[in-house]
Design a protein around this nucleic acid. Structure first.
Length: 505
RNA sequence: GCUCCCGUAGUGUAGCGGCCAAUCAUGCGGGCCUUUCGAGCCUGCGACCCGGGUUCAAAUCCCGGCGGGAGCACCA
């Protein structure tokens, strides 16, 4: 609690924001120092924005009550595991600022699941079913028990051992948890707990053939790991109902289940399997391709993890379904980076321009208008008067040039007022005018000096913008800058030259 | 088909029977400031899904309708 308030206080100072940082509502039944929460992703790929909600919320409550946060990697389906995901998830959480107190990997806990399975069988709460899956499903829908359901415990136990020993092949046998076949909600009736998978596991190889299914392993682990609160999305509502049967069969006390609403995130690709395919096909550069909604993509674009955290805290834990507004996320991130991002000009679709001026011109734009102490971007243009001179070369964006119609007078920001005097074969000619920017509102254009560098900016919608940037950008590798009148971007260097990843407007 | 969840401005959020002709943020419009279309300041726009009930009083409780979403996997 104290730490949380401290952080909020710091933020307030740093951001100069008057509205207080949002705070999560109290957690039902939470005791200071006594809550255990967990985040349990499947290691099929790195985390994306959707995952981050569960991670952040659980972490926030763990911190709020000085409790514990457990990370549990749910790798019980050998077919859907990306061996790299274990590390990627950990990296993503580290970046998010999530404090992991303890990490478990389910594939290392197989014996525990087997033990609970036996216990369940012993209590008459589970049965080995050898029906074809479809048939079993049909019977369930009708509320009819399958032929194997009511056999005596000893037979079930024998069958179970046969499953383990390899008598059955994949799809031939499964251990099913009994619930209530007549339950009005078909989603709650008997559900499979463990099944046979004849594929080597990336971590434990072929040591096991029988793997637990989600609802079983989750219930077992949540209990054994001492979770006090299960905070997860509403899509698990029916899973909770099923998992409660395991608790009841085993005589375990129920944790407090909290379900927040479903999140829909528009306009970005989040589906791990699709992303993987597209990466393999070469359509995405990697998991951090800035068109993606992965956390590493957001990181690459220059998002602050605190922005994502604040965003989810603001959204809260209501059971209402929400649609993520990137506008809102952008706004939060903007308040975080506006202060640190230095300002530069990016000239898109550059057009050469010759500027005639009698006197030397000096441009001394601040790196940041609110932080003059950071220094200035200084450029000097030697005099090059109209009669006789060749003109100083500068660059204007094509966007700007398209709107210029002689005799237009406008302002080259931080340099001089200018007048368009002519255009020939795509090259434009300008004459410097005395005066300052007064009255130039709406006609202020960015420009670039002659020694500017080419840069490619990748937009999140896939658009690629090419242009020039001021040479001083060299000092900003890895940093987020603001290209005035264009937006924020994070700067990198690649073999091909300078690259900007657009953050947001 | 069955079951469950949800329904406050474009988006997110506060409110949980009277102080609500409804909070804050974001967005959009206008103004100020500024040599940025950023930041800051001022200001305007914009919502309780509908219909019944309960009550002196309902965004808040109950019922029905409508709308949205999820689940019914030998995925997690």
């Amino acid at each position: 609690m104290e730490r949380f308030l401290e952080e909020s206080g710091e933020c307030l100072q740093k951001e100069k924001r008057e509205s207080p940082s949002p705070v999560l509502p109290p957690l039902e039944g939470a005791v200071e120092g006594g809550v255990v929460l967990r985040f349990a992703p499947g290691p099929s790929g790195p985390l994306h924005l959707g995952h981050s909600r569960a991670a952040i919320l659980n972490d926030e409550y763990a911190k709020l009550y000085q409790g514990r946060f457990i990370l549990r990697l749910e790798d019980t389906n050998p077919r859907r595991i990306d061996p790299d995901a274990y590390d990627m998830i950990l990296e993503d959480l580290l970046w998010l600022g999530v404090e992991v107190h303890k990490m478990y990997i389910q594939s290392e806990r197989m014996e525990i699941y087997y033990q609970v399975a036996r216990e369940l069988i012993g209590r008459g709460a589970a049965y080995v079913c050898t029906c074809p899956a479809e048939e079993w499903r049909k019977l369930k829908l009708k509320g009819t028990p399958c032929p194997h359901r009511e056999r005596p415990v000893e037979v079930q136990m024998e069958e179970w051992e046969k499953m383990l020993e390899g008598v059955y092949c994949e799809n031939e046998a499964t251990l099913v948890v009994k619930t209530d076949l007549t339950h009005p909600n078909p989603a709650v009736r008997d559900f499979p707990a463990l099944r046979i998978v004849d594929v080597p596991h990336p971590r434990v190889g072929d040591r096991y053939r029988v793997y637990p299914l989600y609802n079983f392993s989750v219930a077992v682990d949540d209990h054994l790991m001492g979770c006090t609160h299960i905070l997860r999305g509403k899509d698990h509502l029916n899973n909770t109902l099923r998992q409660e049967y395991v608790y009841k069969h085993m005589g375990w006390p129920l944790p407090i289940f909290i379900h927040y609403g479903l999140v829909s995130i528009p306009d970005v690709q989040l589906k791990t399997s699709t992303i993987r395919e597209e990466i393999e096909k070469g359509n995405y550069s990697g998991w951090d391709d800035v068109r993606l909604g992965t956390l590493r993509a957001l990181k690459r674009r220059g998002f602050r993890p605190e922005a994502i955290r604040q965003f989810w805290v603001e959204v809260g834990v209501k059971p209402v379904d929400i649609t993520v507004s990137f506008q809102n996320l952008y706004s939060i991130n903007r308040t975080l980076i506006d202060d640190v991002a230095n300002r530069y000009f990016f000239v898109e679709r550059p057009k050469e321009a010759f500027l005639y001026h009698d006197r030397p011109l000096r441009s001394t734009a601040p790196l940041h208008p609110q932080h003059l102490e950071r220094g200035r971007r200084e450029y000097y243009l030697k005099p090059s008067p109209l009669p006789g001179g060749e003109g100083s070369v500068i660059y204007l964006s094509g966007r700007t040039v398209d709107t210029l119609i002689p005799p237009t007078i406008f302002r080259l920001k931080d340099l001089t007022n200018a007048e368009l005097v002519g255009e020939e074969r795509g090259i434009i000619y300008l004459k410097a005018l005395p005066g300052d920017a007064q009255g130039m509102r709406g006609k202020i254009y960015e420009w670039c000096p002659p020694n500017s560098l080419p840069m490619t900016i990748y937009m999140p919608d896939g658009e690629v913008k090419r242009g020039l940037v001021e040479p001083l950008i060299e000092k900003e590798m890895g940093e987020v800058v603001q290209f005035e009148r264009f937006g924020f971007a994070r700067i990198e260097r690649s073999e091909g030259g300078l690259i900007g990843y657009f953050t947001h407007p």
